[in-house]
Design a protein around this nucleic acid. Structure first.
Ligand SMILES: [Zn+2]
Ligand SMILES: [Zn+2]
Ligand SMILES: [Zn+2]
Ligand SMILES: [Zn+2]
Lengths: 151, 151
DNA sequence: GTTGACCTTAGACCTAGCTCTAAGGTTACA
DNA sequence: TGTAACCTTAGAGCTAGGTCTAAGGTCAAC
């Protein structure tokens, strides 16, 4: 049976975070001392480590709550339910990657178009691009090329 | 000279957002009526559109504040300063993409390892993987393969 | 028997970028 | 003159996941 600071040391999660997870229904100390101290048994600790692992993969606390309901009663749940949570998360991640890659491309095009030197910014092609609103449509690259600024 | 709701219609930003940007020093209505109504002239509008464009690329409001200081006095600033802001943003975006791609790979491996069917979740390899803490190191794929669950 | 390290709770604070509400003043039109 | 649609401000609320503080109780060691 570990006290909260011992569990904190074992898992790398702070005592604050452990209490926060408890407040959100993710974990629990199955025993409390008379004075109210939390004591975590082996099963409690495995559950905390499950949460930590799921969290490190990127699952939200809400996702993890669902995964935990499955975990405590695997007979009543199917692989399908587990993959659905996982696939939703993957879709979400892929969506974010797409957004970020679009930003990445635009930023790279901007960087390629600017000399980056110590010259005054009066004719800076990045500033021009931001001013000309070249990003109203998806065709950023050709718009920038049309502006004559891509090297 | 546009009133705030007209500028809102023109830019697609809400009046709330325009006031919010003003509070954060990004934009301004250079004229106010006697009763306090904001009136935006052509230069004000161009500035708002600059902000909108920069925002759509993913620059933070703080980034945009810096870009705007350059914009109003291009003689005192260099292309180098502009590319630095842009490169920092690109680095940040690349960092986030890397994190997300790592999540993506892990989620994909999990999905590949699970049958996804209506069978009970007792032997679900995703649940097992989360329970076995296979993600303590970076070598997720080989760890999962070692667990004998990758198809 | 007192120090110091631990534990408890409720609840405030943080980021970032909005989003909305309340309470009231202004303007345009019929 | 009324009323609807606008405008103003300050400030609260939202998301997600913590992070921290305050005020107080507990426990082990010296
Ligand atoms: Zn240059
Ligand atoms: Zn430049
Ligand atoms: Zn299965
Ligand atoms: Zn499965």
């Amino acid at each position: 049976m570990l006290k909260i600071s011992e569990l904190s040391a074992k898992t790398g999660l702070t005592a604050h975070t452990l209490r926060f997870y408890e407040k959100h229904g993710l974990i629990q100390a199955s025993t409390r001392s008379e004075s109210g101290y939390r004591y975590y048994n082996a099963a409690d600790i495995r559950r905390v480590e499950f949460v930590k692992t799921a969290r490190s993969i990127g699952f939200s606390l809400e996702d993890i709550n669902q995964l935990l309901s499955i975990r405590v009663d695997k007979l009543s749940h199917s692989c399908q339910e587990v993959t659905e949570i996982t696939r939703n998360k993957l879709d979400e991640v892929n969506g974010k990657i797409n957004e970020l890659q679009s930003m990445q491309q635009t930023l790279q095009i901007l960087l390629d178009s600017c000399c980056g030197g110590p010259e005054r910014a009066i004719h800076c092609s990045i500033m021009e691009a931001l001013d000309k609103d070249l990003f109203r449509n998806q065709d950023n690259e050709s718009a920038l090329q049309a502006s004559g600024r891509v090297k």
